[in-house]
Design a protein around this nucleic acid. Structure first.
Lengths: 304, 304
DNA sequence: CTTATCCAATCAAGTTTTCCGATAAGTATC
DNA sequence: GATACTTATCGGAAAACTTGATTGGATAAG
């Protein structure tokens, strides 16, 4: 009653079920047949019930109870294999977890493709994901909460960070078709531009405090995330820069219009993988950084 | 390398982490302190890594690897307890699984309340849920695929079934307010009624084949589920009976109108728990049947 | 500074468990 | 009925586990 079932016993149990017999299980596990018999009867004694119906018939059959417990046994063995795989990875220097901070400008298709392939390549390495605008993602890396960040150019040049170019991102100033700028003569000079409210992502981290990028208007809407910026611009409340991947369909269908502005041409916003200089990548993190580079390349190839 | 970690070792590991020390873990587990030492170092050897940082310090601290594996270890022990609990239940005659077939007329709030309380009362008993209209649910019980059914009156009187009244269900003929019957003089006689298309749930099981209940119209829409019936009636394509619990809000707001029909008054449709006479309920199934009765009672009390 | 206390590691010895190989008893198939 | 295959069981050997005592080290109190 005190005694626990053993993983060994559960493994025997599974082998018997899968192979359909005690002897076959013994062969599969490379152990004596008596061990199987012994193991099964011990397991049955500890659980206080019969797992197999073996009334002299050639093949023992699972009882109903056995079938119910089979699922638990499978879970246990799967968990064991997971644990062993993780331990094996850790023993070889793999991280137990990668904490990734991404800027909101990283195209979602790139992010999902990378995460998906990462999961199959490193099933034992957990992923923790932080997202933030502009400085926020870099800030998380600076504080050591994330060990890899994918951020824009401006953030990657801080002295405590090591950065590596992984790809680019087309940003274009846009507005709703009903917006006056959409119908103005191109290119719009700076002096005109500043008269129209601009939607700007603002960020509360200390690294970008007070700095503005491509802000020309006197009047700004400050939002904290890309979705809100997108919504405000779509609603015609103002103009602003948005990544082309996000609004590709809307540009095609005319629900948004690309603006031609003198001081703000459509620009390629480079993205960098960053880490703190005193926290080198483990194998999984550096694999992930390479994968981001490849995914960015694939992504811009498809867009063209 | 071949040797598996043992559940015993994992339990020791957890105890050390929770108690914060080897000796404390020994006290908790009522075992000699050397066992803890032995067990931890064996586990570390088998996994090929260090779990604790113990550089002469008073309290051993988890390494990063240890923290990663801790979660797996917890899962394993939780799984073990689940398995043992299920085995304990099975040994005492509990079912490993209850297969429940419900008629679509069972109010969803009743069903969810019962399933929720069942899950807390019998966490080790799995539930498989079948839903169907009219005969379908009873059919599943007849065929032995489900061991408990909650069905309407007509299905419960088959000779191979044992049935028990668990509650009732108000059914009312209704139509959209735009429907001619909604504005007709009440009560509508049968001869008039048959001129308007009726939406009827039809069921393909052999037990109700060819039988119809409360079908008066010459022209019928035959659908296979309640949601479709509901949608067709709401759209004004026809009239038909719907359970009051489903359309309570729509009756209040006037989006549906209760009809007063001479041959089809609002009726109480009784619901029965059924089982095959040669397959008696186990303890969990009979608890569930009782719970359905209580839930139906609560439900109709609240509706009043 | 000394002493007492608590801790983890290790060792030797006894006990229990597990394993193997052989054997027995039984069942399908030919 | 012979044969080839099962599962159960037993005895002896090997391995693993447990215990209790001891050691060396770190902390806290006197």
């Amino acid at each position: 009653m005190e005694a626990h079932p053993t993983l060994d016993q559960l493994e025997i149990f599974l082998a018997v079920v899968e192979e359909g017999g005690f002897s076959a299980a013994a062969r599969k596990l490379n152990r004596a047949q008596s061990v199987i018999s012994y193991g099964v009867s011990n397991l049955e004694a500890q659980l206080g019930l019969q797992l197999f119906e073996r009334t002299g018939t050639r093949q023992p059959r699972l009882t109903e109870s056995g079938a119910s417990l089979l699922q638990d046994a499978r879970r246990m063995i799967a968990g064991l294999q997971m644990l062993r795989a993780r331990a094996h990875g850790l023993a070889q220097g793999l991280e137990g977890e990668v904490r990734l901070a991404v800027d909101v400008l990283v195209p979602m298709p790139v992010l999902t493709v990378v995460l998906e392939s990462f999961r199959t390549a490193y099933p034992t390495v957990g992923v923790r994901l932080y997202t933030g605008a502009l400085g926020a993602a870099a800030d998380v890396v600076m504080r050591g909460e994330a060990n890899i960040g994918i951020v824009g150019e401006a953030m990657s040049s801080l002295p405590e960070l090591v950065s590596h170019l992984v790809g680019g991102n087309q940003i274009s100033p846009v507005a709703a078709p009903s917006h006056p700028l959409a119908r103005a003569d191109a290119p719009v000079p700076k002096a005109v531009l500043r008269e129209y409210p601009q939607v700007v992502i603002s960020d509360l981290s200390r690294w970008t405090d007070g700095r503005d990028f491509h802000v020309y208007a006197l009047n700004t809407w400050r939002v904290s995330d890309l979705a809100t910026k997108h919504a405000l611009i779509s609603a015609g409340l103002g103009w602003g820069g948005l990544p082309v991947w996000l609004i590709h369909d809307e540009l095609e269908s005319g629900r948004l219009v690309a603006l031609s502005l003198e001081p703000y041409p459509p620009s390629n916003y480079s993205m960098f993988a960053i880490r703190r200089d005193d926290k080198p990548f483990g194998p999984a993190a550096s694999w992930m950084a390479e994968r981001f580079e490849a995914a960015f390349a694939d992504f811009s190839r498809i867009r063209k």
